[in-house]
Design a binder for these strands. Structure first.
Length: 458
RNA sequence: GAGGGCGUAGCUCAGUUGGUUAGAGCGUUAGUUUGUGGCACUAAAGGUCGGGGGUUCGAGACCCCUCGUUCUCCCCA
């Protein structure tokens, strides 16, 4: 018999990991709620139409398609065979697949907004914490099934939304004990750069290239731009842009000079200045996370049009652990135009890795069973069972050992499961109505009346 | 889509230039110990060496194919 396995890029999570992950989820969820965001959940699968063409050509390939049922129906063989030929030649056809697994949370959200636009109170603020699936090649920090935690606001152009979202980032990472830098930029500035360097139509190529600056260095960025057909003059302008340095005020004024009177650029600069003026204000004692401009920040090219965010952990080698930005007209794809929005996302799987490396998970997170009742005979365990139910009624997690056996095994079980207390109720205790409560951590024990047990402080 | 690494006990891995009956640690089970755990000691169970083909007197090891997995690039979270 062959051993079972997992589909590539998926994982099982054991108790300890689930508890830590839940801690992250809870933290994010509670902050989302604190800022007035409402939960939304959407199905794991969507109609293929809803997803196709929204993530670019590359993205379409990475969508997990679901095979239609009933293809083995003899009446449909001719049609099915024909349709399958199309699939073999690279065309997706409804005859073979008309549903697919969710690729992200943003497009399903846009679909939801478009379907329920009439009933929504605008601005509509929703958060969503669910897994998504991608048929990507897995590698470090990259899976085929992973969670996204998104918060979006639609129906408002106000920059206050960006301010709120930046505060959410700062608050969540403060609570998690992860020091981060929140980098901001504006797609308007990138658009302006493309315009003044005379390559407005090359904006995508330009952003892709400069986004890699810290990864591959200036020379290679220039080489890539050159390969994309930009002239030396154009590359020169871009190099000036990339070499802007100093504090935020200095950077903004240098940028102003470079972009000149470009209208889009001006808007972008004003928006950045607005946000910088509204630095995150989170409770005292905090790390004082600040927004920092980073003009090389580009982010996934698709729908972003205004301010963009990216969060990186300080002191750990890891890609971005959060990102987001403003988009105009996302629901236009679904027939409801002119609904502007802005959103952020948390990368839980990476946040987990970062927190593990920094060792910042609180110990309480691991709390499981508190008390193990020893099983020392039929009458004894029956009595223990009654006491256990009383403790459970008080909200204390308890277990009764599953069979009567020697102390040795029962102790070892408690040890391995990290259960801090055992309660010994044997024949002796049974006759005089007592029980022994032993703290395994301190190696101390005391004898109590059984009636006192519910008042005991575990 | 392109290119590397690795598949040996439940887990982590040794296994010499190809050589008899493939090993260790951890884990599991039992015992030393019939009401006080972690430690120690003893013993046992546990393998189609990922699969198929080839070279050879002889293959866990070498060659080819294949499957799985992992990492890098592309792209992304």
């Amino acid at each position: 018999m062959s051993k079972p396995g997992l589909p590539q890029g998926t994982r099982d999570f054991s108790a300890a990991v689930v508890r830590k992950r839940n801690y992250i989820f809870q933290t994010i969820r509670s902050v989302f709620e604190l800022y007035g965001f409402q939960p939304l959940e959407t199905p794991a699968m969507e109609n293929l139409d809803t997803l196709m063409g929204k993530y670019g050509e590359e993205g379409d390939k990475l969508i997990f398609k679901i095979l239609n049922n009933g293809l083995d129906n003899p009446d449909k063989h001719t049609q099915a065979t024909e349709d399958f030929e199309k699939v073999l030649s690279g065309k997706i056809t409804k005859g073979i697949t008309e549903r697919a697994l969710r690729y992200d949370l943003t497009i399903p959200f846009a679909r939801y907004v478009a379907m329920n636009y009439g009933q929504l109170t605008l601005p509509f603020k929703r958060y969503q914490i669910q897994p998504v699936w991608r048929a990507d090649r897995p590698q470090k920090g990259r899976y085929r099934e992973f969670y996204q935690c998104d918060a979006d606001v639609v129906g408002s152009k106000s920059l206050l939304n960006e301010v709120e979202l930046a505060n959410i980032y700062a608050t969540v990472f403060e609570k998690l004990g992860v020091h981060v830098e929140i980098k901001i930029n504006s797609r308007k500035i990138l658009a302006a750069l493309a315009e003044i360097s005379g390559g407005a139509d090359k904006m995508v190529d330009i952003t892709v290239a400069i986004d890699k600056l810290d990864k591959i260095g200036l020379e290679k960025v220039k080489a890539e731009l050159s390969a994309k057909g930009l002239t030396d003059d154009q590359i020169n302008t871009i190099e000036k842009y990339l070499s802007i340095e100093g504090n935020d005020t200095e950077k903004l004024s240098a940028l102003q000079t470079l972009l000149g009177n470009n209208a889009t650029g001006k808007e972008g600069i004003e928006e950045i200045a607005y946000l910088l003026n509204y630095q995150p204000q989170i409770p005292p004692g905090s790390a004082g996370t600040k927004l920092q401009t980073d003009f090389t920040l580009a982010r996934g090219l698709n729908y972003y049009t205004g301010i963009i965010f990216e969060v990186k952990a300080i002191g750990v080698q890891m890609g971005s652990i959060g990102g987001g930005g403003r988009y105009d007209d996302l629901t236009g794809l679904f027939g409801v135009p002119n609904v502007p929005g802005v959103g952020i996302s948390f990368g839980v799987d990476r946040i987990y890795d970062v927190m593990e490396e920094l060792k910042v998970f609180p110990e309480e997170v691991q709390a499981g069973t508190q008390v193990l009742f020893f099983n020392l005979g039929e009458a004894e365990s029956k009595q223990a069972f009654g006491l256990m139910q009383q403790l459970r009624g008080k909200g204390i997690a308890c277990e009764l050992f599953h069979e009567t056996t020697k102390f040795d095994k029962q102790f070892k079980y408690a040890d391995k499961k990290g259960i801090p207390y055992v309660i010994i109720l044997g024949s002796e205790e049974l006759t005089n109505g007592t029980c022994v409560v032993k703290n395994l951590v301190k190696s101390e024990q005391q004898t109590l009346q059984q009636t006192e047990l519910t008042g005991f402080k575990f």
